[in-house]
Nucleic acid binder design. Structure first.
Lengths: 226, 226
DNA sequence: GAAAAAATATGATAAATATCAGTTTTTAAG
DNA sequence: CTTAAAAACTGATATTTATCATATTTTTTC
């Protein structure tokens, strides 16, 4: 297993939350974990014994209703931390975490995290900032759903969000490739309707669609819908 | 101003997050603030200099879109803490906080909070747990919107949530009284449609409606809709 | 490389929701 | 107490969204 140094983790992005995590004991116990596309990292209600930081790749948080239907709550990328709540509160995870792509995780031992929580205010502050980032991200994605607009507008907003969160290549292609069903799950609609709307956007010239590849031609026109 | 002792604050509810906040200096600077119904406690982007804990009453967090329409993000009640993110990160508030009823707040000085963040891991852990509670509440309310169900089902779920969060009197009447417009803002729909749905529920016998008073007759039947 | 499974696609119809125009009731202000 | 403003209400119509049946393409599996 490759060692995941905190320094490396810090380089993942300019993320305050890891800036002071350079504690020897945490470092000693961190290790990399390679996860294949579609694999479940942890399940709702599962008591975690690792805190995960995404070094490379993308994941989703989701929950399942009593009919077994999946509802995607959030997308996570490089530098995002997963499992905080379970590790700190010693309770089962609130969500199911699944890899959307080949993913490399940096894993920290629960016991080391808990030791530092008790003894190191810098470390605590780092985690507090991670929670603040989380809450900000939730607020941001929240505007996708809660604004009282139609699903057409929400899809436009979701595509713009994905472009911002995961980036685009020089041609404008979204770096993240989601299934239609996943988009539907985020927006709380059917996969057929997503397809209809994507076709509608394509006909309007806002974007190009080729299976799971989506190229945004005009972010402006998508924004104007909103 | 009445002194708000931490002990009192703790009694507000069985809330871990305040259990160890018994720090003399914080205590010294805490004071009560009385807020009338409809008053704004703080606005989005405003840099806060107090951390607020609700002693009595109910509040809402909301945000406004570029057309000026309000979107309610969350409801807050007894024991809930407001303003954490701004106080810790020294940035503007992410939401606008408004009193839904006559409200009594316990206010803590920013400088004292920040001093304790730097020196006291117990205090940090308390705030971490407050963030965890927040995130759990968000997840819970989230199921109201993101589950791919119709607005009828979402309204049923919202009513059940309000009953759980703010309680009911012996007759089943919701202790919190919301405007139709506020319910519409939470669910992202129009106030007229909320009214139509409430009438529909009334005709079905699930509840009684008398202006802003709502009596839930059959929580079971509401649950079955979901 | 063939068969099976999964994902994408299409369009018609049914159902849900938005919007509008107008009325009544309640609350607030003077 | 009166008037103005806000909130609650109603129902008809237009629009959006869900659902279904079916077809095609891609990916997976053996």
């Amino acid at each position: 297993m490759e060692r995941c140094t905190i320094i490396k983790a810090q380089q993942l992005r300019n993320f305050e939350s890891l800036s002071k995590m350079a504690l020897d004991r945490v470092l000693e116990t961190s290790e990399s974990l390679f996860v294949s596309k579609g694999a479940i990292i942890f399940k709702e209600n599962q008591l975690l014994n690792k805190l995960y930081c995404i070094k490379e790749g993308a994941c989703k948080f989701s929950t399942f209703d009593n009919l077994g239907r999946e509802h995607i709550l959030r997308f996570l990328g490089k530098g995002d931390i997963m499992g905080k709540r379970s590790i700190i509160s010693n309770k089962g995870a609130n969500v199911t975490a699944t890899a959307l792509t080949e993913t490399v995780l940096c894993c920290f031992d629960k016991s080391e995290i808990q030791y530092n929580l008790k003894t190191n205010t810098d470390f605590c502050n780092d985690l507090l900032h991670a929670f603040i980032e989380d809450a900000n991200a939730v607020d941001k994605t929240r505007t996708i759903y809660c604004a009282n607009k139609g699903i057409k507008q929400r899809l436009a907003q979701l595509l713009l969000y994905l472009a911002e969160k995961f980036g685009q290549d020089p041609s404008g292609k979204l770096m993240i490739r989601l299934k239609r069903e996943d988009m539907a799950s985020v927006l709380g609609t059917s996969q057929e309707y997503i397809i209809n709307l994507l076709t509608h956007f394509k006909n309007k010239g806002f974007l190009q669609v080729n299976r799971s590849e989506i190229v945004l031609n005009s972010k402006e026109e998508l924004r104007e819908l909103i």
